[in-house]
Design a protein around this nucleic acid. Structure first.
Lengths: 346, 346
DNA sequence: TTGTAGGCGTTATCAC
DNA sequence: GTGATAACGCCTACAA
């Protein structure tokens, strides 16, 4: 490995000067700059990021915590990959590298340890669980003043930095659309309420009903676990009450598709289907039969936003402060209802 | 940050001794060990991975290069997430962290630079392109003796370390199955032949035909780009020749589903569909209507394998050498045909 | 405009 | 068994 020292020697300058040239820092005589550049090129010198980070005592890494995804694919890979792309895009602009951290099944994450080991300078948590250990780990991070951001989940009663989509409004819009289509008995296949997303969606669902003067009926509430299979299972219930149900709103696309599949297996044709709306607008939505209306969530943008909250661009930060006076703790991005054939009643 | 020095002082030993205790290296008197442990606990000392890596001049990172995935989702996130999980699982066992590297649109990757910057100790390339720059970059890596592994692509004429699935056999099996189902005119919607996978699949397709004594007909070959949309577009051609085509073998699930969609939009019912087989057995296969038969590719295991080729477990390495005499350069894992309704003719 | 020198927190190699 | 003490390659005052 060719080091700065050799470049310095060849160029006939001190090591400090080599650094100044390569970091474009401080005033440098043009001729010196050239000599150093030439020497560096000639030797094929590349500064060691490792040594640099060490000297600055920064890892240079943005940690990204991925949820544990069991073989029984509960979640779609879709939105993790979208968020990752957003995070990666912004991180690259900031000169940060992404350190991928996989959560293990039962394991409680030692977020603080990752910082203390100097593995990461900041952290984005994608698969936050709302349990005791997780909460404690995050509270500790906050006490220690570590930069971190939780995506896609809200910890009630905390003031963590969080980035999410507005699922209340997203669900309200979806259900309102169903109502506009003439649906009155709208089943809601939600996810488990350990996810804040689920309770938010329920809220939006109820708001839409209320706005339309439709009474909320607990009997129309079903719970799945965001897997296709759980939608398949829910389909039995739905099929048995098809005279009482004219629409299905599912908390994600996979469950919606599971329900469709189940109905189909029971011999129902598309023309006998209730109206359907899914959630996430993942890639499977447009592959469904019929194509599934869905609430689009800006996962990519959420990734970008989360990253910039941790690594604020100096310029942005200034203008943000000028505009708002402070950075808000929790930010919600808007969703968009994508209407396809599944929700159109004619 | 509490450092080793403070622990040493509190424990009344030298820094070297602290390291010995914490690294469980060298002989240590039990009492000393306890004193050090206590001091470390009391101070909440956590060794800095950054400093450690620097001192060892190893980054401690396994780089994973992700392909550029444009908004027009050419590929499914599915197999990248599967491979990543496999890689992550094995890397964690080896004490390596994953550094995620996103390829940018036109950018030619400077793989060698990543090593010379000491950002990574080894590298797995997921989205290899078969162009000149890429090849040069990889050849350079090899010349420099860097540990790297290409996944899912074969560079002809090179002896890179590669991990892939046996797509010749996977395709042969799929097409043979179609033939067993009585199909004789099997359209093949392949991907572009810049991907070695595509040419391998074609080979398998032809082999199956030959085995069955069916003549190969170039007219039955269609080319898409692995996107659902390209399947949609191909469906026009297929629909126009449905009297001459009794099955469609697609090089991935998304294209197969695109074709189904296209046919459906043209008013064809499932009973008029040709037999279908897709490839990858991604999560969308079982969501298709009808459920799509597909060739399952062990992406997770491929990730594990690629990682262990780079970071051989000492024990495994020994036994492998005993068995084979050397590690093979290119390894192929077997695929498995998953039969669902789409390919059953009764 | 450039050089000097201390420090970053380990590892690893000697001595004792 | 344990303690000194060079590296490791770079950054960053502080001097000159």
């Amino acid at each position: 490995m060719v080091s700065r020292k050799e470049v310095a020697k060849l160029a006939g300058v001190s090591e400090a000067t080599v650094s100044r040239v390569l970091n474009a820092a401080g005033p440098i005589k043009e001729e010196t700059r050239r000599r150093v550049q030439d020497a560096a090129n000639q030797l094929g010198y590349v500064p060691s990021a490792l040594a640099r980070n060490f000297a600055r005592s920064k890892s240079g890494h943005l940690g990204v915590v991925m949820p544990y995804v069991p073989k029984a694919h509960l979640f779609s890979a879709y939105f993790f990959s979208e968020m990752l792309s957003g995070i990666g895009s912004k991180a690259r602009d900031s000169g940060l590298d992404l350190l991928l951290l996989f959560r293990k099944p039962g394991e409680k994450m030692d977020y603080s340890g990752l910082f203390r080991q100097q593995k990461i300078d900041a952290c984005i948590i994608l698969g936050a669980r709302d349990d005791h250990d997780e909460l404690e780990a995050l509270k500790r991070l906050q006490e220690e003043g570590r930069p971190f951001c939780v995506m896609n989940h809200h910890f009630a009663g905390q003031s963590f930095c969080e980035v999410d989509a507005d699922h209340v409004e997203g669900s309200r819009t979806a259900v309102s659309h169903l109502i506009e289509q003439g649906c009155k008995r709208i089943a809601f296949l939600n996810g488990p309420d350990i996810y804040s997303n689920s309770t938010e969606r329920l809220k939006g669902y109820r708001t839409a009903l209320q706005d339309a003067g439709i009474e909320y009926d607990r009997e129309l509430l079903l719970e799945g676990n965001y897997s296709r299979r759980s939608g398949l299972e829910a389909s039995a219930t739905i099929a048995g009450r098809l005279n009482d149900i004219d629409a299905v709103f599912a908390a994600n696309d996979r469950m919606a598709i599971g329900v469709m599949q189940g109905l189909r297996e029971l011999g129902l044709g598309v023309d006998q289907f209730p109206a359907f709306i899914g959630y996430d607008d993942s890639d499977v939505a447009e592959m469904a039969v019929p194509p599934l209306s869905s609430v689009r969530v800006p996962f990519y943008e959420m990734g970008v936003l989360a990253t910039s909250k941790l690594i604020p661009d100096p310029l942005e930060r200034i203008s943000a402060l000028e505009l708002t006076g402070c950075a808000s703790i929790r930010e919600l991005l808007s969703t968009e209802l994508i209407i396809r054939a599944s929700s159109i009643r004619q």
